[in-house]
Each structure stands twice: as structure tokens, then as C-alpha cells.
Simulated assay, not measured.
Amino acid sequence: MAVKKIRKISSTVLIVLALIGVVAFGMTVFGGYVDPNAEYPEPIYTNVLLYTVYGMTALAVLAMIVFGIIGFAQSFKTNPKAALGGLGALVGLIVLMVITYFVGSDAPLHVGVDAQQFNTPSWLKLADMCMFTIYALIVINVLALVVTSFMSAGPKQHASASEKKA
């Protein structure tokens, strides 16, 4: 019974969020322009679409944090060692992000006037941190795939000699 209730609630939330997104997108695309004769016409409802995306992103991050904490607490009750292993992975990710932040370059870029506000050492290091962390996680994932595929394709345990005679 609980599974049906969870499925019904999650399906309803998905449909509502999808409809909100479609309505915001439709308002942006079909709502008209501030100045239709401009070289690059700006849709009237661009802010509605942006705030909708911001809200959904914030909601997703909040749900991820809350359910992560709840899942950790429940897992810690049943299997503390496994729960601490998951916490270790989170700590490892944070350490990786700190390392990649300090490895990142703070050399200014030659960009247009509009992007100059982000051409500061902290923003440049943050951008490099994001890219280097993504690259490192991709490499770690590929290595994990290769290692686990070799481990699962390793030698199979064969029946013992006494079992073969029987």
C-alpha cells in the first residue's frame, strides 16, 4: 500500500512540475517581445522562465539534501559501516573539489565587456574547479567500470575434483 501511495505522490509531483515548466516555456516563447523591432528581440516573460528554473533547481537540491540526510540516518541505524562509507565518498568529493580549486588558474581571460565581472581570480578558479572536478569524476568512473568489468570477467570457480567424479 505504501508503495502505491509513494508512486502516486511522486507521479503527481512530476506532472505538476512538468506542467509548470511547460507553461513557463510557453509564456516565454509565445508571450511576445519587449521590442519586436530590436536586432535581438527579448521575450517579455524571460524572467518567468528563469525563476521557474531557479525554483525547480533549488527544490531539487533541497530535496536531495533532505532525503540524503534521512537516508544516511536510516542507513546508519541498520549498517553504520556502510553509512560511513557513503559519508567517506562525500568527504572525498569535497577534498577533490578543494584540490581542484587550488590547482585552477587565476590568470585573467580576454573577454568582452559583459563578462568582465566574472573575470576575477575567484570566479576563474571556481570555473576551473568545476571543470577539473568533472574531468576527475569521469576518469574515476571509467576506471571503476574497467576494474569492475575485469573483476567480474575473472576466472570462474570450477567444481572440485570430487564433485566432477560424482
Rank of each mutant, 00 (worst) to 15 (best):
S152G: 01
A115E: 08
M56N: 14
A73C: 05
L14S: 02
D35E: 15
F118V: 10
A60W: 09
S160V: 00
K164F: 11
Q117M: 07
K165Q: 14
T148R: 11
I65Y: 05
F150G: 00
M56E: 15
T52M: 00
L19Q: 00
L137R: 02
S160R: 07
I15Q: 05
I20M: 13
F102Y: 14
L59Y: 13
S75D: 03
K164V: 15
V142H: 12
T57N: 12
I15Y: 10
S149H: 10
I70Y: 04
L124V: 06
T100A: 05
L137H: 04
A144F: 10
K156F: 00
V3Q: 13
L14M: 09
L96H: 03
V66R: 02
M27D: 00
H158F: 07
F76C: 02
F25I: 10
Y135N: 12
P121Q: 10
Y54G: 07
K164Y: 10
F118E: 08
G154L: 02
F132S: 03
R7T: 11
V113K: 13
V91N: 01
L84P: 02
T52E: 02
L49A: 08
L143D: 02
V147N: 01
V23I: 15
L143S: 07
V111F: 05
V142Q: 06
I94D: 04
V113L: 12
S149C: 09
M1P: 11
K4I: 05
V16T: 07
A161P: 05
A115C: 01
M27G: 01
I94G: 08
W123E: 06
E163W: 12
T133Y: 06
S160P: 01
F102A: 06
K77C: 05
F132V: 08
W123C: 07
N37W: 10
L17G: 00
